[in-house]
């Protein structure tokens, strides 16, 4: 493992952990979505790191196009989920006047 690859993977691990923590611990819907985005970003980083190192057993040193294609697909998956999530959060805000979990619950009790 080269230094670059170690750096990439360490960064990905840190971002993944941060994202998971944000998704679980934050009550704000938009912060939850940002956590989700971090989770997905860490996956993209892992794929990009992989495409630089020879993943094929024959030891070719050119960049491997397949992980890059995977990265693009993973970006599409992550951003579509993000778009749907933001749309839902906006609609929730329109009807509950908040994007905080506990305030929405309070609103629910009132109505």
């Amino acid at each position: 493992m080269t230094l670059a690859s170690v750096t990439f993977h360490a960064a990905a691990a840190a971002i993944f952990a941060t994202g998971l923590f944000t998704v679980i611990a934050r009550g704000n819907l938009l912060k939850k979505l940002l956590g989700l985005l971090l989770l997905h970003v860490s996956v993209w980083i892992v794929f990009v790191a992989m495409s630089g190192t020879p993943a094929s057993p024959d030891g070719a040193t050119i960049a491997n196009p397949l992980p890059i294609a995977f990265t693009l697909i993973a970006i599409v998956l992550g951003t579509t989920a993000m778009m749907v999530g933001i749309d839902l959060a906006l609609r929730i805000r329109a009807s509950a006047v908040s994007v905080e979990d506990d305030e929405i619950a309070a609103h629910e009790l009132k109505s």
């Binding site: 993944f16 994202g19 998971l20 998704v23 819907l29 939850k32 979505l33 989700l36 989770l39 997905h40 860490s42 996956v43 892992v46 993973a74 998956l77 992550g78 989920a81 749907v84 999530g85 839902l88 959060a89 929730i92």
Partner: peptide, 17 residues
Amino acid sequence: AFHALVFQSTGTAFLLM
């Protein structure tokens, strides 16, 4: 729907990783 999305998308992130 929002909670379903967050849960499932977290699952997707694990699957992708």
